[in-house]
Simulated scan of single mutants.
Amino acid sequence: MSVRDATPEDIPELVRLREILADRMAQDGSFPVDGHWQEAYADSLRERLGSDDTAVYVVDAPEDGLAACGIGLIFERFPGPSLPDGRYGYIQGMTTDPGHRRRGHSRAIMSMLMQWYRDSEIRRVDLHATSDAEPLYREFGFVTDGHFYPSLTWRHPS
Score class of each variant (00 low, 15 high):
4 R>T: 08
4 R>V: 11
10 D>Y: 05
12 P>A: 04
13 E>D: 00
14 L>T: 13
16 R>E: 13
18 R>W: 08
19 E>R: 15
20 I>N: 09
22 A>T: 12
23 D>F: 09
25 M>W: 00
31 F>I: 03
32 P>D: 08
32 P>M: 05
34 D>A: 12
37 W>P: 10
38 Q>R: 15
38 Q>C: 00
39 E>M: 12
39 E>I: 10
40 A>Q: 05
41 Y>R: 10
41 Y>S: 02
43 D>T: 14
44 S>T: 10
48 R>V: 02
51 S>Y: 01
52 D>A: 07
55 A>E: 02
56 V>S: 09
59 V>M: 01
59 V>D: 03
60 D>P: 01
62 P>E: 06
63 E>K: 12
63 E>N: 10
66 L>Y: 11
68 A>C: 06
68 A>Q: 12
68 A>H: 11
70 G>T: 04
71 I>A: 01
72 G>P: 01
73 L>E: 06
75 F>A: 00
78 F>K: 07
81 P>I: 04
86 G>D: 13
87 R>C: 09
92 Q>A: 15
95 T>K: 11
104 G>V: 14
109 I>R: 11
110 M>N: 05
111 S>F: 08
115 Q>M: 00
116 W>F: 00
117 Y>C: 14
118 R>A: 02
119 D>C: 14
121 E>R: 10
121 E>K: 08
124 R>Y: 15
127 L>D: 12
129 A>V: 14
130 T>V: 12
130 T>M: 12
138 R>H: 04
139 E>R: 14
139 E>T: 11
140 F>L: 08
140 F>Q: 04
142 F>R: 01
143 V>F: 09
145 D>I: 14
147 H>D: 08
148 F>S: 03
149 Y>D: 10
149 Y>R: 10
152 L>F: 03
153 T>W: 07
154 W>V: 05
154 W>Q: 03
156 H>L: 08
157 P>G: 11
158 S>K: 12
158 S>L: 09
